[in-house]
Design a binder for these strands. Structure first.
Length: 118
DNA sequence: CCACTGACGAGTG
DNA sequence: GCACTCGCCAGTG
């Protein structure tokens, strides 16, 4: 089971738990970028690590991973052949998030809006 | 130890 | 909007 280190790291003091803790704080109907999660988790500049941590999650997790998208406002999983991107989009739309084509307006749905005032 | 890859980000042309 | 480069960290061969 050492597929991916940290899957069970929930019991240890890994950075993973910090990342999950931040993701759990994302309000419903709102989205956040990997970079933001990384920064709030105390791992500035390690957006990649966030994606790595989220990839370790499995079905049935209590972490709302679908609210985490990339800085382009697009789903990093949209390219995934597993079809996970569709699941993510479906869950977001169900929370009221509207897609503009294949993109979400971070200015409007981004958590902790730092964009210009609409 | 080195090379490659990966749910990323920011900068440049 | 798209393609390319560099930076970051961890896992794997």
């Amino acid at each position: 089971m050492s597929g991916v280190a940290g899957v069970n790291a929930v019991a240890t003091g890994s950075s993973y738990q910090r990342i999950y803790a931040v993701v759990r704080r994302i309000p419903r109907g709102r989205v956040t970028t990997y970079g933001t999660v990384a920064r709030l988790a105390g791992l500035p500049g390690q957006a990649r690590q966030v994606g790595y941590a989220l990839s370790a999650l499995r079905d049935g997790t209590s972490v709302p991973w679908h609210r985490v998208i990339n800085a382009q406002g697009r789903l990093s999983l949209e390219r995934a052949a597993s079809g996970a991107g569709l699941t993510q989009r479906m869950r977001l739309e169900r929370e009221g998030v509207v897609f503009e084509g294949s993109r979400v307006s971070l200015t409007r749905y981004g958590w902790r809006m730092r964009g210009p005032t609409t």
